[in-house]
Structure formats: structure tokens, C-alpha cells
Simulated assay, not measured.
Amino acid sequence: MSDTAETPEVHSALDRAVEGQVADAVKGNWVDRLAPVWTRPYLRLSRADRPVGTWLLYLPCLWGVTLAAASTGFRWIDLWIVLGCGIGAFLMRGAGCTWNDITDRNIDGEVARTRSRPIPSGQVTVAQAVFWMVIQSLAAFCILITFNAAAIAMGVASLALVAIYPFAKRFTWWPQVFLGLAFNWGAMLAWVAHTGSLSLAPVLLYLAGIAWTIFYDTIYAHQDKEDDALIGVKSTARLFAENTPVRLQQFLIAATGLMVLGVLLALLRPAGGTAAFMGLIGTAGFALHMSWQLRRLDTENTDRCLSLFRSNRDAGLIPVLCFGLAILA
């Protein structure tokens, strides 16, 4: 056989590269199948072919608005908050990922899982990526200004966290904390959009979300730990190493405990025992799902890590469902 002969696996990899598909995208996703060809590099920049990140940004918003509605009563504006936060999560996750790819373009080219992304693979220039980021940000701002003044101020304030996050892995072993600070801001913003003011309950929900983010993003980061070590990128996956299951259990407990406190504070007195019970059921389901993930975790199995990471959409939906039922209690 010639030295240049290609195995089926190599041929498949080359086909994917020619088509511009990203290595860790969901197979058969709508971007690769249905989107006009000229839009695909931009949608891949926004991670539209990997929708779980949008869910993980959106779910804390749903926690905030449903818990607020269960606490103080449903309002028709809540339907717009749910829809507006969904659109905003898609847009701001896209803008944030574009910013992340701009800042990480040299690092991504050195990591097997990320070198197929649009900028390191040459599908999009940096200037084009900056333009796309601005477009998405402006569209998200148009959604934000339909909320009350306090929520608008909170939304603008979150931009500092979004800007800092891509650099965190260069100076701290805890970049997942910075991701959590940015990704769970919506829990407070959606609460404020409903109530007009901030209180302790949504802050506790926010802190629970940060602990949850450290949990799921540490699992995600185990996919890249070998490449990260070679290029000097820090992460909790590298920091925790073989102690990852024990450390993740600690963050599971923290996330659960903080959510329990937030639910009790929001629901026990103003809404009553039935509503609080439903909220606690949601928290228990959330904790059980994370416990299931821990039982299945194999940090040396990258496919398993990616699958467990993606399953956190379902984990985060459990509180949403129960908080929603608490509104009816």
C-alpha cells in the first residue's frame, strides 16, 4: 500500500474538513443539513450546530422567571420574558462564542477538538467574526430594552463577565467559575424583569447555577485536558485530575443546597407549602440527575464526557418544570 493511501477514517475526516463541519458538532444538525451554505461558517461561530450551550445559558433565565412567578404571581409579561430570554440566549451565546473564538483562535488551532472551528480552519476571517459578533450583540440589545430599566442595567453589566471569560484559562485554574458567573446571570436578570428588583432568593439561585456550571464544564473540559496541558491552558479538569469525582460531588451538594435555600426563601412564606414542596421536588430531581451523571462519569472517555455534558439540558429543565407547577399551586 502506498504511504499516501487513505483509510476510510482519514477519508471521512477529510470529507468533514472540506464541508467545514466542526468536529464536536451534533451529527446531522440543522446547520450542516439545512442552512444556506454561505451562512454556515457564521452559524458555526455561534455554535448553532451545538445547541446545548444555548440551553445552558437559557435555563437559569427560566429558573429565575418561573420561581419569581411562583413567588409573587404569574403576570402576562412573563410570557414575553420567557420568549425574549430564549431569543436573547441564542443571540448572546452566539456573540459570546464568537468572541471566545476570536480570542482563542491561536489556541484552537493547537487542540484536536477545536482546530476545525471556523477561524482556525480558515472559513471566516477575524474581521468577519468581529462584524458577526457586533450584529448578534445589537440584536440581543434590541430584546433587552423591552424589559424594565433594572433588567436592562443588569443585562449591560453582564457584558464585563462575557468579555473576561475567554482570558480566564490563561491566568486561573478556575475558568469554570468565570463561565458560571456569565452563564447564570440570567437567573437574576429574569427575576428582576418580573419583579423590578433584586432579592436574596435569585442570588442564591445564581450561586447554585455557578456551582452547577463548574460541575458540568469540568466534565466537558476533560475532553481537552491533554492538549490543554501541552499548550499551558488551565482548567478545573486539570486541577482536579483523578480527584474529579470527589470534587464534583462537592459542587453537586453546593448547587443543591443553594437551590434549596433559594426555593424556600422565594416560596415558603409568600406562596405557601404546596408551592415550596413543588420547588423542592424540582431541586431533588436536579440533584438526582447530577448524581446519575457522576455514577456514569469516566474522565478518560471523551465521548462519555461529551454525552454527560449535553445531558445537563435535561438536568436544568427539571427545576423549570417544577417551578412552573409551583405557579399553579
Score class of each variant (00 low, 15 high):
Gly285Asn: 09
Ala13Leu: 07
Ala182Thr: 15
Glu9Met: 02
Arg269Ala: 15
Thr256Pro: 11
Ala241Thr: 00
Ser199Tyr: 04
Ile119Ala: 04
Phe309Asn: 04
Ala275Pro: 02
Tyr220Trp: 09
Asn100Lys: 14
Ile102Lys: 02
Thr256Asp: 07
Leu198Thr: 07
Asp3Trp: 05
Ile152Cys: 08
Leu62Met: 15
Tyr58Arg: 03
Leu321Pro: 10
Asp303Pro: 02
Ile318Phe: 15
Val22Lys: 00
Phe286His: 12
Asp104Pro: 04
Leu14Glu: 12
Gly285Leu: 12
Ala17Ser: 11
Ile210Asp: 01
Trp292Pro: 01
Val18Tyr: 07
Asp49Trp: 00
Ala89Ser: 15
Leu14Asn: 13
Glu19Gln: 13
Pro245Lys: 13
Val260Asn: 06
Ala182Asp: 00
Ala35Cys: 01
Pro118Lys: 13
Val52Cys: 07
Tyr220Asn: 08
Pro36Met: 08
Gly73Met: 01
Gly324Gln: 06
Ser46Ile: 00
Glu226Leu: 12
Leu62Lys: 06
Phe74Trp: 15
Val65Pro: 01
Thr256Ser: 15
Gly209Lys: 07
Met188Ser: 07
Ile87Trp: 08
Pro60Tyr: 04
Thr218Ala: 12
Ile327Ser: 05
Ala326Val: 01
Ala193Cys: 14
Thr146Cys: 09
Gly324Ala: 14
Thr256Lys: 06
Leu62Ile: 09
Gly94Asp: 11
Trp174Lys: 12
Phe141His: 00
Ser2Leu: 10
Trp173Arg: 15
Ala237His: 01
Leu264Glu: 08
Leu138Asn: 08
Phe171Trp: 15
Ser197Trp: 12
Ile135Thr: 10
Val10Cys: 00
Thr244Met: 02
Arg117Lys: 09
Arg310Trp: 03
Gly324Trp: 10
Leu91Val: 14
Gly180Gln: 13
Met259Ser: 15
Lys234Tyr: 04
Gln176Arg: 12
Ser307Thr: 13
Ser291Glu: 14
Leu79Tyr: 02
Asn243Met: 07
Trp38His: 10
Asn243Leu: 01
